[in-house]
Structures are given as C-alpha cells and as structure tokens.
Nucleic acid binder design. Structure first.
Lengths: 265, 265
DNA sequence: TAGTGGTCTAGACCACCGA
DNA sequence: CGGTGGTCTAGACCACTAA
C-alpha cells in the first residue's frame, strides 16, 4: 500500500516527494518520531515545503514511511507545537503561511547572539565567592549568609557593549569552582558552562522591565546619560525545583530588544 | 488489579488517594487525558499534591483510573510541559519542588490583569478606519493604502494609568466593524472581542524594548518627565498565517513588568 | 458521503536506574 | 535484578468538514 497510484492531493502541493524529504534510520538511537519531525522541520525551514503546502493525511504518510500512525502523529504534533504546521479536522494539514520566529526557550544571551551570527564577546568584571546578601539568599531559597558565587560580566557584540550581567549561584553546587573560571566564562555563555559541568536547567521565571541608567551604567554600556535601560531578572531551577541561578541584567536599550514568539494556549 | 494491596510507594507520599483526586466522566465531551491532566493540575496548584510528592507509576495509575496507559501518559506529558511534574526513567514521577509561575501564552494585558485580581479599566482614545501607512501596511502584509482599523486605548489598574496601546487590524477582516465598538473595547480586552467575533489568534511575534518617554507620554501615563518606558510590539497571526493584528504599546515602567516562564528546550 | 484529524485501547519491547 | 519511563505498533471508533 505504498499509495503511489493515489491522485496527488489538490490544494497546493502533493507529496510523493515525502520519501525524498524524510529519511528514517531504524538503527539510530534517536526516536522515529524525532527523526520524522526533524526532517520535516528542516524541509519547511529550507523552503522545500513552502508555506501553504498541503501534507498527505496521517494514514498515507505512515504507509509511505512504513511507520505507525501514532508515530507520525507524534511528529506532527511536535511541528504544531512549534507553529510550523496547522491541522484541522476534516480539512487536513498545511504548512503555516507565515512562520513564527522561534519557540520561546530557555537560552542565554550568548547563545542567542551566536546563533544570529553576531560574534559575542565577554569580559569578566568580577568573579568571587561571598556570603549571600538577604535579597539574593531569598530568591535562591538559601539561608542568609550562605556562600554564593558572584559573577559580573560585560557582554558585547561587534565591539559594542550590550549588557551587564550579574549572576549568583549557590556555592554548594558540586563542581562549581572548577567550572566557573574566568577563561570558561570569557569563551562561553554561563548556561553552556553549567551544562558542560552537568548542571541542567529545567525552567526559569523571568521579569522584564525598564529604568533609567545610572551614570556608571551609561559609561559602561556607552549609552547617553540617563538613557533608558532594559532590565531582566531571572531565577532558574533544576529538575528538582531547586533554584540554581539568579541573574539580574541590564541591556543597552538602543541596541537590544527581547524577541519572542507566543503560541495560542 | 486495583493494586490496593500494594505497598504505599516510598519517598514522599504514596497515592491511593488518586481516585479522590481524579474523577473521570466518560460521557463528557472533554477528552479523558484532559480530564486527568486538569484534575492533577488543580490538585497540585491547591497543594493537595505538595511539591516532592511521588506519583504512582503509569501502569498503576492507568489501572486505578481504568484508562489505558497511553491516555495517562498523555496527561502526564501535558503536566511535564507545564513544568508541574518531573519524570525520570528508572526513577519515577514527582511533583516539582518549585512551581513555575505559568506557561507563556498568547494572552492580552487585560486578561492578565483581570486574572491577577486587579480590576483593569480601559479608555478608548481613538477608534477609526484609515488607509494604512507604509510601516503598518508592511508588518500586516497589506498593500500600502489599504484600509485598516486603528485603535488607541489607555489601560489602567487601580485608577493608575498603566499603558497606552495602539492597534491596527485589516479592515477586510469579516465582521470587524460590528465587533470593534467603543463599548466592547471599554468592557473587554481586544483579544476577547476578536474571539467573540470568531477571530482566533494562533501565534504572535513580539518585541520588548525600552526608551524614554516623550512629554505627552509622561503626562498620559503619569510618569516622571523623560522617564523610562517599556515598549512592546506584537504582530499576531491567525491559523492560516495571515497577520491579523499589529500592536505597538508603551508601559509605565515604574508600575509594570513582563513576567514570563521559560522551559528548557 | 468520503475524507480528515482526534481519541482511546491493549499490548510489546527497550533503556535507564537503583539496590 | 526489578521497577521505571520511553518508544512503537495495529487496530478501533468518533467528530468535524466539504462537496
């Protein structure tokens, strides 16, 4: 039932090319649904499945790729959640007309800049261990006076300062002092460094606001005196729900904005 | 195999109370997995399943509730994606220690304020139809000069002005002139009004920045002269990927911040 | 009416974890 | 080793949409 005798689905574009677009390796450790989703995702992003393209129905896709329907469904659900396709009962599945930028994820400024082709640089302004002051202890859920790592960095892109980033992490996290070196922090983003050390963040609450720059901030960020700053505070948690990082950052508002994509509930 | 003879799972708290927490109505039009997820979600939020609670394994939950394992899995996956529980192979499922505030969703300022108990009010400062100016036409994907609805609103909470919101919508959207009345916009949020008229938003790109207030903005928002403003621009799309709304808003930074929750990729 | 996606089931095998 | 979640299958029935 390879269904090649079926009429090409009307609408925009039919899909016998499916097998050209999606390749499956049953020996791979990566799950089938992930392989399917990844292939379709790439095809959509590269324009091989242009906006408005109608996809075959689930049954046919499953048959052509020789996997089960639930597996295909899982792949397609993933694409829906990323906003790449739209499905409607009785209608079918289409590639969305206008692509959302990206799903909102827990990433770092460094990664974002690097991904968008800018070459971010980092200067470590301070790096020490000290007793947590009350507000820091509180957001991290620590007793007052417990030791924390304090990090202050200046992040730049294209030789222009972009943000001053201040982070606190409980010193009790295992292996932290080996990870958090000036060298590592200069070369990589904080989250990269933590991930390399086996600390994986699970979720974060963040708060974005604005205020006027102090004189020192204006100088540091090369912004006009008293200009507007974007501020962001973030508390990140690991899998167990423990707070592992608190960051309070200021961004040069003339050169930086937060871009995000929201999907309907 | 109702498994009541099983030992209560060690760790934090066992669950024979499951049937007290989750009630299922097979006659309801709402899917089983959604019913299960909803019940567990409420139990977690109300503290009846406190942080750290260990849940029974999938097989046992399925047996106790008399549904299939995939159905239970689907419910639990939903809770994972909302950051309420954590699952690990070989370990089990636990309620997360620290709850994330809320998943990031496509909502309106009005809904957010109403949900958090503040009583938002709206003043409609302008409401008209006019030819789209070039920048507006471009972000909405319209030809220059095509007619658009223009809306300017002042949103307040507790009698304090909070934001000036400017929105543009293509006049070609069906039924728009019946929906967008001063009365409706005074009483409800824009997205509520659109939803009531059958226009459902699917995704949005938004950009958050900061700048200093103009003299007029300072007066309108009751902020200090030249103070910092939070700015947000948003383009929202419907299911077909057509841009249906463009908004450009300014917020009083001393009284408003964006709160959001990020989950790891 | 024919075709679509949405839901649900009952089972199977595997990879990972801790004791 | 036993227990856990992760993956995959092969079916079934239903609700919705368009012609």
């Amino acid at each position: 039932m390879t269904a090649h005798t079926e009429r090409v689905t009307a609408g925009s574009v039919g899909l016998d090319r499916l097998t050209e677009i999606v390749s499956i390796d049953r020996g791979s450790p990566v799950p089938l649904y992930a392989q399917v989703a990844k292939c379709l995702e790439r095809a959509i992003e590269e324009g091989r499945l242009p906006p408005g393209t109608r996809l075959d129905n689930e049954i046919r896709i499953a048959a052509e790729l020789a996997v089960s329907r639930p597996t295909i469904r899982r792949a397609l659900e993933h694409l829906v959640s990323k906003g790449l396709i739209v499905r409607r009962r009785g209608i079918g599945t289409r590639v969305v007309q206008r692509r959302v930028r990206r799903p909102l994820e827990l990433t770092s400024l460094f990664d974002d800049l690097a991904a968008s082709g800018q070459r971010p640089t980092t200067a470590v302004l301070a790096l020490d261990v000290h007793p947590a002051e009350p507000p820091v202890a509180q957001v991290l859920g620590l007793a007052e006076g417990v030791e924390v790592f304090g990090i202050v960095r200046l992040r730049s892109a294209f030789d222009q300062p972009l943000a001053r980033m201040t982070n606190y992490l409980p010193a009790s996290l295992p292996g932290l002092s080996d990870m958090l070196t000036r060298e590592a922090l200069t070369r990589h983003g904080l989250y990269q460094v933590l991930a390399a050390g086996g600390i994986h963040l699970h979720a974060a609450n963040q708060s974005i606001g604005a205020r006027r720059a102090t004189a020192g901030e204006s100088r540091l960020l090369n912004e006009p005196m008293g200009g507007a700053l974007l501020t962001m505070q973030r508390v990140a948690f690991d899998d167990h729900g423990r707070a592992v990082e608190y960051g309070t950052h200021v961004y040069a508002a003339t050169r930086y904005t937060f871009e995000l994509t929201l999907l309907s509930p």
